[in-house]
Structure formats: C-alpha cells, structure tokens
Nucleic acid binder design. Structure first.
Lengths: 199, 199, 199, 199
DNA sequence: TATGAATGAGTATTCATTCAT
DNA sequence: TATGAATGAATACTCATTCAT
C-alpha cells in the first residue's frame, strides 16, 4: 500500500547520503572552498542540477556533514556511560577516541569544518553541540571516578573534561599533519591524562 | 653612496610588510580562499599588479604569514630558556603562550594556516618548524625540571612537551570558537599541566 | 452521463485559470524572463510537473495572457458600438479605456508582452489582433461622428483611431512609470482628442 | 607630456564605447534578459572578464545605454529652441522625432529599457529625465506658438507637450511591431497634432 | 617600481523541461 | 491528472595571474 511512497522516499534518502559521502570525499581531498559543485556531482554520479534537489546550497552540505560529525560522537557518549570502573572506562575511551580522531581523512575534514565554524555561526552551532555532548558525558565519568577514588579529587572541575578532549583532539590533529607515530603519541597521552588525574 | 639603494630597500621592505599585514587582516576576516587579490591590494593601498612585485603568488603570502608565525614563537623560546626555576618558568610560559594563542584573530589565522598545511607541504613545513622549535625548548625545560626535582620524573618523555602545547593550543582555539571565559580556562589548564607533572 | 466528464473538464479549466493568474502575478512582479516555472507552480499551488499538463511551455503561458488581454478589449468594443451620440460615446470610451490602461499591474504586463512581441511573432499576432479589433470599432465610431457632424471631417482617416489609441495607451504607460496624477493627465487627453476632432 | 596618460584613457573610453555598442546590438537582437555576458564579450571582441573592468554589472550596461538614450534627445532639444516660427519648428520636430523613434532597433531597445524601468528605479530615473528634458523644451515652444498666434490657445497646458510626445513615441513603437507604412502614419500624426493645436 | 586593463577558466546557482511513478 | 526528482546547459560574476605601459 504505502510501499511506492516509501520506495521513493528511501531512494531520495539514499541519494542524499550518496551526495553527502561524495561531498565529504571531495572536501577531504581538496578542501571545502576548493571543491566545486561539479566535482561533487560527478563523484556522486548525480547531475549537477539535481544536487540542489537534495541540498539548497554548498553551505548546507557542510552543515549536513557537521551534523554527521555530531552523530559520530554517539558511540563515544555511550562508551562513557557504561557501568564500568571509571578508570578503565576512561582508558578505553581515550584510546578509542584518539584513534577516531587520528583518522587522516576525518582529521582533515574536522579542520575544515572548524575553520568554517569560525565564520559561519550555523556551522559553529553544530560543531560545538557535538563537543559539549561529549564533554558532559566525560565530566560525569570524571566525577564518578573522583567519588569512587579512581581519580584524585584536586583538579577535577567542569573544564577538565573539555581539556582532556582538547588534548586528545589537538594531539591527533597535529599527528595528522606531521606523520608522527600514532602509537607512541597515544601512550604519552594516556600517561599524561592519568598522571593529571592520579591522587 | 649606498644610501639611496638602502632607502629603496627599506621602502620595499615596508611595502612588503604592509602587504602582509593587509593579507593577514583579509584572511582573518574572510578566510584564505575567499579573499581575493584585489581585496588585499585595496587594503594595502597598493595596486593590484604591484602585489606581484612583492609576492610571486597568493600562496607565497600565506607562506610569508606562516614564517611570521614561525618568528612569533621566538619570545616564547627565549622565555623557556631563561635561567629561572623550571616550575616558575613553566607557569609563566603557560600563561603567556595561552594568552598568545587565545587572541581571536591569531586563532582564526592559525586555523586557516593549519587547514592549508594539510594539503600544501611547504606550508606544513613552516608550520611544523615553528612547533618543533617551541617543543624542543619546552622539552629542555621539562628535563631540567625533572633534574631539579621541580617535576616528578615518571611521565616526562619526548612527547610531553608536544602534548602540553597541543593542550594549550587546542584549548585556546576552542575557546575562540565558543566564547567561553578565557580566565577560567587558563586556570584549569595550569592546574592540569602541573597536576600531570607533580611528583 | 457526461456530468463526470464535465466536472473534470471544469476542474481542469479552473486549474488552467489558476495557473494563468499565478503566472500573470509573477510576470508583473518580476518580469517574464526573470520568473521561473517553480515560482509560478508555487504561487498557483500546483506541482511543477503539473504545470506542463496545462501549458506546454512557459511561452504558451504568455500567449495565454496575450489572449486574455485580447478578450479584455471586448467590453470596450461593445462600448464603442452602442447606439449613442458619437461624441458622448467617444468621451466615455476615452475615460474608460485610459483608466483601464492606467492600472499599474496591467501596464507592466502590457509592456512585457509588447517587448516580447517584438521578437516572438505568435505573441505579436495576438497583441496586434486585440489592437486592430479595437481600432476598427473606433474607426467606425469616428466616421459615424463625422457623418453626424459631431466631429469635423478634415482629419479623420483610417489612421486616426490608431493614433487616438496610441495616445491613450502611451500616456497611460508613461503615467505608470513616473507617478504623475492620472486625473490631470486624463483631462488633458480628453481635451486633446476633442480638439483634434472638432470642426 | 600627458600623452601617455591620455592614450590610456582614450583607449579605455573607446573600449567602453565598444562594449556598450555590442551590448546594445545584443539587447536589440535577443532582449536584455536573454543576452548573456559572453555574447556581449564576444561581440565586443573583449574577454569576458574584461567586461567587468568597464561595467560593474550587466545592469550598469543598461544604465549606460539609458544615459546614451538620454543624450540622444539633445539634438531635438536644440531643434525645439531654434529661433524659427513655432509652427514650422513643431512640424520639423515632429517629423524628425518620429523618424528617430521609428528606427526599428532603437524602438526595440527603447521598449526593453522601458520594461526594465518599471522594476528598476535607477533605470526609470534616466529614462524619465530624458523625457522631461524634451517635454520642457516642447512646452516652451507651444507657449511661444500660442503667444505668436501660431496655435490656438484653448488646449495648450503643461501636459500637452507630454501628450504629443506620447503620441509620436506610441505610434512609432506600434509601427515597429506591426510593419505599417511609416510615411502614412507620419502624415496622420502631423495632421492630428496640428488639428489639435489650430485655432 | 608601479599601474590597472586584459585574460579565460572557474564559481555557485538557476533554468525550462522531461519522465518514471 | 499529479508529483517532484532528474537533467545539463546557461546564468552573472570572480579568480589569480600577466603584461604593456
């Protein structure tokens, strides 16, 4: 009964995703502002005009990607909320999130989005929302860890989670520019975070 | 004899600086790729064609700015090499460098240069050189501090300095996107760094 | 038996009218060539594709409007053919037709159609047919007036009616561009027409 | 001394004129909105980009043409101000101006400009200024003619000149759409104008 | 050194129209 | 009849760069 409607809707959604994937790939390769709509269309195997049936503008594609980025933190939020010993949980999170941020393509795209966010408020909005969701979950974990004596009490405040994230992301981003060994970097980060949190 | 030549040389250097300042201002306002050469020329009160007497291309202007960025770390390197108690020195450096990185315009330009560095090796080179100069000086200080028992020995390795810089820079950059209070942020950074380094 | 068909026919005719009204409104607001089919569809509350069930092309919409224009002269033709003293009849016609041509929206649309008529023969055809229908009726009236001694004989020829219409239309159109007072203009037109026709 | 500067200036002016001529030709052929900048560039034997060194936008080209139109009335103004018997002067003017307005290309361009003037105030401004300059000169002549008893006094008021111009222009424009004989039309116009003005 | 006209490929976006559903 | 996704050529305009002066 409703299958023909759904079919069309599903097809349209697929196209949207297709286009967004192509856009992401292009932006990674050449940067947001260097990428032309033609490139995206070609890569998505979609006609140029049809791009605009799915996204009203190039800018909106970046918003789409920023929102994808936003939802990409969900698994990490879940990870932070599991009922596991906080120190164990933090260690696992740190590794997983660093690995996530170290992905070369993701890092490049992240930088481009961040750069655009400095001038476009609606990008900034999505960008920061993803961040604060994650920071809140991490803050909860840290306080739980202080309570359970996993972490020393002295330095944990509402900024700590943000700083840990800054550290992980910053290190991963830099690691993407120079080609330093991620494993060593990772071990150092872990050491630093836990050193800061110890009693 | 050579004074007329010098005068000309001096004038030319001034022009170059003038142009670079204008370029920086434009890049901050609208981003590297959105800025046109005409804009820069107008802002520098220089004719469009004359721009090319000072920089062979737009790309070279960005290199010029990356090199300026490079030399902007000099005072911080000096600061790190003073003969002061390492913990005092580090505290002062942390504050000063964070403040430096928190400047809104500088942060925007920094992000743009970083984004460009991901795709342009000659930008990356300057960008990373500035970074490693600073990291080396900081590493020296940290080891000095370990020797003098200012810092606990356990976690200091060759990556530590980089991570501290990642933390400071990352936090400052994020602070520039959302408009969080830099003073509070700064206190938290200091706390975190020293917590990580304590015995 | 044929009522369901008729219902459908009636509905279709209504849609057609709906679309034509929307097109007219759009053309008035933004001009024929600046108006997009999407705009018209939205304004007519009709889907884009469905537009083409009623008009095979945008061009045909303009033809439709030119034909509407054509039929809009019917009441004036009737007015000219009434059995009234020619001078009275002419005075009434002049006033009514000037008023009709002075309507701002109609004037804009009229100009657009005229401009298009210069390059599209099938528009020109409709455009001129409306005109000649009116001119013929007016010519009849003028000759009747000459016979009845309402008007002086000397200048009335087959072009006179056209010129009177040119005068009324031209003045009304110009009055629509600058915003001069139509009442004064109208009185002057009347004076001029009757001065030309007097003995 | 100043010749090199002048040479460049002269060359630039020539180019501007060249471009404006090409634009006029294109607008006549295909209409303002159907003409693309590439067409104009090609016709003017100028590169596309260079067009924008001479006119900031397509719109400004139309303004340029409207201003040219404006200055094209100068000879007619002069004609109206000669020290000749008013009735003779008017007859000559009527003929000359009608001939001028009957030029097919000029008429087409005139219509396009008029249509654009309905939506663009800065076009309307130039358009109406040309008109009112002419109307003022004609008004002077008419009053002079009334004084000298060339014309009957009754109907001449401040609108009369405008109406005479409306008549001439309207008739010429219509004559350009249908292909009626201009000579006959011209004779009828003259008859009508003088009939209206006679004692 | 300084100027700005000249170049033509490149930009994001819109267009009228078609067509599978 | 009705829908709106799909098409790709066309739109006005901007770009970094060159070059004659």
């Amino acid at each position: 009964m409703d299958s023909p409607l759904n079919n069309r809707e599903i097809a349209s959604r697929k196209r949207r995703e297709q286009v967004l994937d192509a856009a992401a790939a292009c932006f990674v390769e050449r940067g947001f502002h260097q990428t032309g709509m033609r490139e995206i269309a070609k890569r998505a195997s979609v006609s140029l005009g049809n791009l605009y049936n799915h996204f009203p503008s190039k800018h909106d594609m970046l918003i789409g990607l920023a929102e994808l980025e936003l939802s990409s933190v969900d698994p990490f939020v879940e990870m932070l909320m599991r009922n596991v010993r906080p120190s164990v949980c933090l260690r696992e999170f740190t590794r997983a999130y660093f690995q996530h941020c170290s992905d070369h393509d993701a890092a490049i795209l992240y930088l481009d989005i961040a750069a655009e966010a400095m001038r476009e408020p609606d990008i900034a909005e999505r960008f920061l929302q993803a961040r604060s969701t994650l920071a809140e979950a991490l803050t909860s974990l840290l306080f739980k860890g202080v309570e359970s004596k996993d972490f020393g009490p002295s330095i944990v405040d509402t900024s700590t989670a943000d700083l840990i994230l800054d550290l992980i992301e910053g290190a991963a981003a830099r690691g993407s520019i120079d080609a330093s060994k991620p494993d060593m970097l990772m071990a150092s980060i872990e050491a630093m975070v836990f050193a800061a949190l110890r009693h």
